[in-house]
Amino acid sequence: MSKFSDSIVNQRFVQVYKLLEDKHLIRGKSDLAKHLGTYNHVINSILQGKRNLTVDQIHQLCDTYEIDANYLFGLDVPPFMANPGSERELPTGGTNEMVNNGRQNIKLVPQKALAGYALDFQAPTYFQELPSFSIPGMSGELLAFPVSGDSMLPTITNGDLVICEALEKPLDGTFPVIRDNEVYVIVSDVVVVKRIQQLKTDGLVTQLRLISDNASVYQPYQLDLEEIKQVLRVKRRLTDHAIS
Rank of each mutant, 00 (worst) to 15 (best):
K3S: 14
F4G: 00
S7L: 00
V9W: 10
V9M: 10
V9G: 05
V14H: 02
Q15C: 00
V16N: 01
V16E: 01
V16C: 01
L20K: 00
E21K: 00
H24D: 07
L25K: 00
I26A: 01
I26M: 02
K29Y: 00
K29D: 02
H35L: 13
H35S: 08
G37A: 04
N40G: 04
V42G: 09
R51K: 15
L53I: 04
T54G: 11
D56H: 14
D56F: 10
L61S: 00
C62T: 07
T64K: 05
E66T: 02
N70G: 08
N70K: 10
F73G: 00
V77W: 06
V77C: 03
F80Q: 03
F80I: 04
M81P: 02
N83R: 03
N83E: 10
S86C: 07
S86Y: 08
E87G: 08
R88A: 05
R88E: 11
E89D: 12
E89N: 12
G93N: 14
T95S: 13
T95F: 14
E97K: 09
N101H: 14
N101A: 13
R103I: 08
R103E: 15
L108P: 00
V109Y: 02
P110C: 04
A113W: 01
A115F: 07
G116D: 14
A118G: 03
P124K: 15
T125S: 15
Y126T: 05
P131H: 09
P131A: 01
S134G: 09
G149N: 12
S151R: 03
S151M: 03
L153N: 13
L153E: 15
P154H: 05
P154K: 05
P154N: 05
N158K: 12
G159H: 07
L161A: 06
V162Y: 11
V162A: 13
I163E: 06
E165T: 11
E165M: 09
A166W: 10
L167D: 04
K169Q: 14
D172T: 08
D172H: 06
F175M: 01
V177A: 05
N181V: 07
V183T: 14
V185L: 09
I186S: 12
V187C: 05
V193N: 03
K194N: 05
R195T: 04
R195S: 09
I196H: 11
Q197T: 07
L199W: 13
G203Y: 12
G203T: 06
V205L: 06
Q207D: 13
L208R: 02
R209M: 15
L210Q: 02
I211M: 11
Y218F: 15
P220L: 07
Q222A: 06
L225F: 13
K229Q: 10
Q230A: 13
V231P: 12
V234G: 06
K235D: 07
R236T: 05
L238W: 06
D240Y: 15
S244H: 11
